[in-house]
Each structure stands twice: as structure tokens, then as C-alpha cells.
Design a protein around this nucleic acid. Structure first.
Length: 712
DNA sequence: TTAAGTATGCTTTTT
DNA sequence: GCATACTTAA
């Protein structure tokens, strides 16, 4: 391995210093990933460390897979016994393996955000708590903070003051946690908390992992929270062979408990730390870094460093002001069309997921391929969650939540009343719900619905058996067919069509997963492993950089990626910085870092833009440009004003609308951006607010508000 | 018990 | 606007 040819001095130091704690402050684009890959390869190939003694924690599963792939192909390393993954997947693996030391068994279910919320709703009902006084989001975030700080329900008041509000939150936390354990389920935060507590409380297990993971590497260390810090610390504090990599200027997850102090205080937490700074950027031209440096130096709490680059460019960053968000979308996409040979060199970055919509419809109108990364998770769609609920029950029969979801889906005559009876029966006989359903006594108890329940119980037993015997994709296909799920959505409604497509896509995805798993691991995956991979998927895991399409994503999801052309949109007060992060200077600094992350993604060009007005679901916002724009020296930015409407055609239409106040009548021909042309069948109300029934030329019948159609 | 109709909340960022 | 959660009638 000739490192001096492939790496710069600092990177070599990172790779070759294998003993003792090392802190790598790696600026954006400074070859951080490269260093981690080479370091792992160096440990194995040069220092003959067995892969099973190495732990590498990455920020996404995709990054983990790439690391494995590179080790295999470039360095001919067998990565089978190497542990690489996100904190969550590593923790899940440990907890499944060490389940006997926990209140869970190895088949525990992982609860996602939607599951968490619906479980919480049940807790509220049981405790008779008003969601208006204790908003779900607020309580979820408090509980999450407790878990990330390793505070169990019983220790709640050691760390929180006692008042009416906290007492209720505590009650919720106690009950929520109790039900999770009863269901043999963990939410995302439990995975971290339970691992940290297990390693902390159980000396034998702790020593086992200390001895196993003799070399530990953590990427994106600036975004670790206390639980994660603790896990790392418990494993590595004795041997101190710990390499953490990160950039305090790119810390953007404090709202989920990440503590920038973990990286700022690393030199205090460990002894004789070697600190290496990677400041040469290999990604962007100096002109773009100048702008980024201008911005970030306004932050107080940071390690001093200045990113520099050899790459030269005469182009300035372009900043354009638009009249509204639709113009912004049209212009940006127009520009992207100019790069149409290399659509996948272009990315649109925004602050909130909701901003993607206006771009999506613009892409559709222009017929340009695009890919939204993140946003609403595929596996959180209703029709998919229904299937997953079945699978979860087969894996973990204690999962009452999933069972309740499917017991009458698709409708099979086991409604509220019957479910109540089953629940009562289960409680009286101290049975899990599924055991109650399959018990002998239940049928007499249930009365006239006994036949339906018996049918369900028999089917479940049959599927349960098949779930063990069949290959996952075959089983899923069989299940979907026997449940007649697709027939359920058979109609002309575009929504239903989409649901059927999603179900089909789900089947294909399961096929792909199993094939990949087989290739990677050399054996067939178990249903547990399949479910876990779905639930611990990160937004980025589905991102395909080779697909010929423009990419859209949040600035958060863009971390670690790079693109030739970066379009940063919606640079308005209220969006960036976001109106909900103006409470403290600390929050404002994080918003600034987010902008910094966005700018430093670019290899060639940055285009920034904002809109004077922006339509949200409720009303029209009049925004000022982001205060951050003023922090970037004018010499790095070329300002352009394009305030008029982009499409002259639409402008004419707007004028007509103003003239006749958009008065709709029956028979009026209209057009809609998504559904095309159609005829108004009925009108309820006036102008933009009118509720119209429209028959579209493609045969679709829809109810649409006046504002979304245009007269022809 | 269920389908169809009506009301509501939603939007910060994610594992 | 959209999706879900709740209400009502059959």
C-alpha cells in the first residue's frame, strides 16, 4: 500500500496512527470518507488486525455498504466479520444478540415515527389526556430527549423539575415505555438507550465488546448524542483505540440530541489525543469556499480552521430574486434543462420537505426526470404499512399494535366490539392478544362472530408457518394475493392506482433485498432481518447517484454528498433560518451551518434563489431574503433580479382571472397542471375558492378548488 | 359492521 | 391540498 501517492500528509497520519485516540477535524470535501476507507484497509492489510476486531460507525447504511464494497473490490478484503453500520443498526444487532440480558427477546419489533404516534394516542386515551394540552410532537420530543440522555422513566424527576406539565409527561413516558416492553418493541431511541444501559450495567457484556472491538472508528462525530457518546465511550475507554472523524461546522442535528461538545471536548474526554486537521478541500473551487468561509466565520462556537482549495474558477455564485415560488421553480428547472446531458450533476436543496412539491410539478410539466431523496418514506405509506404489520406479527407475536392494525384489515367482520371482547378475554386470562385469538376458550366467549375469528386465526397460523418455510419474496407475494390487497384498490382513482403500484414496487424491492443479502452474506435473510433493514433505512439509502435524473433533497440529507451544480432555493427569512429556530443564538448558528453544508456540496457552480411571496397550505407569505445572504461578501455573488412572471402565457391568464374574478360556470373548459384539460360539471362557490367537479379528458373525475385550475 | 361523507390538522430538520 | 380520523346512515 503506497499511501504517500494516494493521500496527503494529514490523511496519511490519520491512516497510520492506529493506536490511541485520534480526532480528525475534517472540513467539507477534505477526503474524510477516503481516509476512513484507507484506515480500515490499513488496519487489516498492513497491521493484520482481524476484521472482527474492528467497528466502524457510519451515518447511513449506504455509506456502510460503500465501505464494504470498496474494501472488497479495491483491497480484496473479506468484510464478512467486519462490523460496519449506523449506530441504530449496530445497536439492534447487539441487542438481538444479547437479548437475554434485556427485557426483550431477539425478535423485537422496531417502531417507527408513525407507530410511535399511534401508540401514544392509545396511551392518551387510556390516561385520559388531552392532546391539545400535551401536543404529541412535544411529548414525543421530550421522551426522545430523555432517552438520548439515558434517563429512564424511574429517574425522570432526578433530571426534570416537578410541575403539573412534567408530571403528566412522566405518566405518559411510564405508560408508553411499559406498553413497548409488553409488545416486545423498541422505538429508534430505545435502540441507543438500551444498548448504552446494557453496556453500562452489565460488566460481562461490556468486557466482551471491549475485547471484540479493539479498533473503533466513528464518522460524523459532531452529530452524536449523549447515548451514542456513551456507547462509544463504554467500548473504547479502556483501550482508547478510537478514531473519531467530524466537522463542528457541519453539526446540524442538535435538535435530535446531538451535542457538538462531544467533538469540541474530545481532547478532554480522552488522554493524549492526536488531533489532525484536514483543511484542503478537493471538491469545490476557491471562489465557492470563500463564500462559505465568509458565512461560517459568523459562528462563535467552533474550532478555528479555514478551508482552502487548489481548484480555480471565475464563476461567481448566482443569486436570483423571484416573484413567487412557482417562478423560482420554473426558472431553476429551466436552468437544469440546460445541463440536460448530465441531469444527475444537478441537485436542488431546500430547508423543508414541503418545498419539493412545487419543483416536482414543474419537473412533471417539463417532462424532466427527477428523483426526490427522502421526504415521505415509502415504507410509511398506508398500503405498505398494512403488509408490514402482518410480517411484524409473524416475527413477533407479542406485537399487539400490529395485530390490532390487521385484525380487521382487509375488513373481515371483526370490528370494534369483537376486538374489545378479545382484549377483555386476553386481560382476564393474562394472555398476549395473539395468544388470546388462538386460544381454545375464545370462540365461546366471542359469541356470534366466532366463525370470523376462527377463520382469521386459522389463516394466521397457516401464514405463520409459511413465513418460516418460504423465501421472503415468495411469501410476500402469496400473502398479498391471498389477502386480495390489490383488488381492494382496483379503481380509476389515481390514488388507488398509485397504491397498487406501490404494492407491486414493494414486492420488487423485497426481491432485490433478498438477492443483495444473499450476495453479501451468502445466506438467505430471515424475516426479522428484512424488517429491520426496512425500518432502519435512512433517507439516503435509496438514493441512486447514477440514475439520470435531477435530485431534490433537504439540506440535511445532502450532508456528505457532492454535485457539480447546486441550486439552493427558498433562501428567505422564515425558511432559512427557519421561523421555528429563532429562539436562540445557538439555533441560529445551526441554521447557518446548514447553509454552509449546502454551499460546500458544489463541485462547480452554486445557484441561490429566494421568492418574494410563497404560498403555503393556508395563505401567502411575504418574506424577506435570508439574513445569511448579507453575510457573504458581494464580491463572491452575482445578484440578478427576475421579478416578473416567467411564463408570459400564464401572465395573460392571471390578467384574465383578475378581470372576471375567475368566475366558473358549468361547461367551462379548464386545464390543471397535473390532470390536464377538462370540463367543469358543477360549481360550488365563487372564484378561487369555488369547489369544482371536473371531468378530465383522460376520464378521471375530480373535485378541485378553483385556484388550481386555469380557464381555457 | 361498514361505506361514504365530513372535519381536521398539517410543516422544520431524521434514525 | 392532502391524508387521516371521526361521524353518520344503511
Amino acid at each position: 500500500m503506497n499511501l504517500s501517492k494516494l493521500l496527503n500528509k494529514q490523511q496519511q497520519k490519520v491512516v497510520e496512527t492506529i493506536d490511541g485516540p485520534i480526532l480528525v477535524l475534517a472540513g467539507a470535501g477534505s477526503g474524510k470518507t477516503r481516509s476512513v476507507i484507507f484506515r480500515t484497509a490499513y488496519l487489516i492489510n498492513e497491521k493484520k488486525i482481524s476484521p472482527q476486531n474492528i467497528l466502524v460507525v457510519t451515518f447511513t447504511n449506504k455509506a456502510a455498504n460503500e465501505l464494504r464494497f470498496r474494501l472488497k473490490t479495491t483491497f480484496k478484503i473479506d468484510t464478512y466479520s467486519l462490523w460496519v453500520g449506523t449506530f441504530h443498526s449496530i445497536c439492534a444487532r447487539i441487542l438481538r444478540f444479547e437479548n437475554e440480558a434485556t427485557p426483550y427477546n431477539s425478535n423485537f419489533t422496531i417502531y417507527d415515527a408513525v407507530d410511535t404516534k399511534s401508540l401514544l394516542k392509545k396511551v392518551y386515551k387510556k390516561l385520559e389526556i388531552d392532546p391539545k394540552k400535551f401536543p404529541f410532537q412535544r411529548v414525543i420530543s421530550i421522551m426522545s430527549n430523555q432517552k438520548n440522555s439515558l434517563i429512564l422513566p424511574k429517574d425522570f424527576f432526578l433530571f426534570n423539575e416537578e410541575n403539573y406539565f412534567t408530571e403528566t409527561v412522566h405518566k405518559i413516558y411510564v405508560e408508553y415505555q411499559k406498553i413497548l416492553i409488553e409488545n416486545n418493541g423498541m422505538d429508534f431511541d430505545d435502540l441507543l438507550m438500551n444498548t448504552a444501559l446494557l453496556l453500562h450495567d452489565n460488566k460481562i457484556i461490556r468486557q466482551k465488546y471491549q475485547q471484540k472491538f479493539r479498533y473503533v472508528m466513528i464518522d460524523e462525530y459532531q452529530d452524536t448524542n449523549y447515548a451514542q457518546f456513551k456507547i462509544v465511550n463504554l467500548i473504547a475507554k479502556n483501550h482508547q483505540n478510537l478514531c473519531v472523524v467530524g466537522d463542528d461546522d457541519q453539526a446540524i442535528y442538535s435538535w435530535r440530541g446531538a451535542d457538538i461538545k462531544n467533538i469540541l471536548n474530545f481532547e478532554k474526554d480522552y488522554k493524549n489525543v492526536l488531533t489532525v486537521k484536514l483543511e484542503q478541500n478537493y471538491r469545490s473551487p476557491q471562489s465557492i469556499l470563500d463564500a462559505a468561509n465568509c458565512l461560517i466565520k459568523n459562528n462563535y462556537s467552533r474550532h478555528q480552521k479555514e478551508l482552502w482549495s487548489d481548484i480555480k474558477s471565475n464563476e461567481k455564485i448566482e443569486l436570483i430574486e423571484y416573484k413567487n415560488e412557482r417562478d423560482e421553480a420554473d426558472f431553476v428547472i429551466q436552468k437544469i434543462a440546460e445541463f440536460s446531458d448530465n441531469l444527475n450533476d444537478c441537485v436542488i436543496l431546500y430547508r423543508t420537505n414541503a418545498q419539493s412539491r412545487v419543483f416536482e410539478s414543474a419537473f412533471m410539466r417539463k417532462n424532466i426526470r427527477y428523483q426526490v431523496v427522502g421526504g415521505v418514506n415509502f415504507y410509511q405509506r398506508k398500503e405498505i404499512k398494512d403488509i408490514l404489520a402482518y410480517l411484524k406479527v409473524f416475527v413477533n407475536s407479542q406485537d399487539n399494535e400490529s395485530l390490532m392494525r390487521i385484525i380487521n384489515f382487509p375488513p373481515r367482520g371483526i370490528g370494534k366490539t369483537s376486538l374489545q371482547k378479545i382484549t377483555n378475554f386476553a386481560v382476564d386470562n393474562e394472555l398476549k392478544l395473539m395468544d388470546a385469538v388462538q386460544s381454545d376458550g375464545i370462540l365461546k366467549y366471542i359469541g356470534n362472530r366466532a366463525k370470523k375469528l376462527e377463520e382469521f386465526s386459522k389463516k394466521m397460523a397457516k401464514w405463520q408457518k409459511e413465513a418460516d418455510e418460504l423465501d421472503i419474496p415468495d411469501f410476500i407475494e402469496k400473502l398479498i394475493n391471498e389477502l386480495e390487497l390489490k383488488d381492494l384498490y382496483y379503481s380509476d382513482d389515481p390514488q388507488d392506482i398509485a397504491r397498487i403500484e406501490n404494492i407491486e414496487e414493494f414486492m420488487v424491492a423485497s426481491q432485490e433485498f433478498c438477492e443483495n443479502f444473499q450476495k453479501e452474506v451468502g445466506e438467505k435473510p430471515q424475516l426479522t432481518q428484512y424488517l429491520q433493514s426496512i425500518l432502519l433505512q435512512t433517507d439516503l439509502d435509496n438514493y441512486d447517484e447514477n440514475e439520470q435524473s435531477a435530485k431534490l433533497m433537504t439540506m440535511h440529507n445532502a450532508k456528505g454528498l457532492e454535485f457539480e451544480n447546486v441550486f439552493i432555493v427558498g433562501l428567505e427569512e422564515g425558511l432559512l433560518p427557519h421561523s421555528r429556530s429563532l429562539e436562540s443564538e445557538r439555533q441560529l448558528e445551526e441554521e447557518r451551518r446548514l447553509f454552509y453544508v449546502a454551499i460546500t456540496r458544489a463541485k462547480k457552480r452554486v445557484f441561490m434563489s429566494f421568492a418574494q411571496t410563497r404560498r403555503t397550505f393556508a395563505d401567502i407569505l411575504y418574506n424577506h431574503e435570508s439574513c445569511f445572504l448579507k453575510e457573504i461578501d458581494e464580491e463572491f455573488v452575482q445578484r440578478k433580479n427576475v421579478k416578473r412572471d416567467y411564463l408570459p402565457k400564464r401572465k395573460i391568464n392571471v390578467d384574465i382571472v383578475l378581470e372576471n374574478k375567475k368566475h366558473f360556470r358549468i361547461g367551462q373548459k379548464i386545464s390543471h397542471s397535473k390532470f390536464g384539460e377538462g370540463v367543469v360539471l358543477s360549481v360550488d362557490g365563487k372564484g378561487d375558492d369555488a369547489k369544482l367537479t371536473i371531468s378530465f379528458s383522460n376520464g378521471v373525475l375530480k373535485k378541485i378548488i378553483g385556484t388550481f385550475v386555469r380557464k381555457l
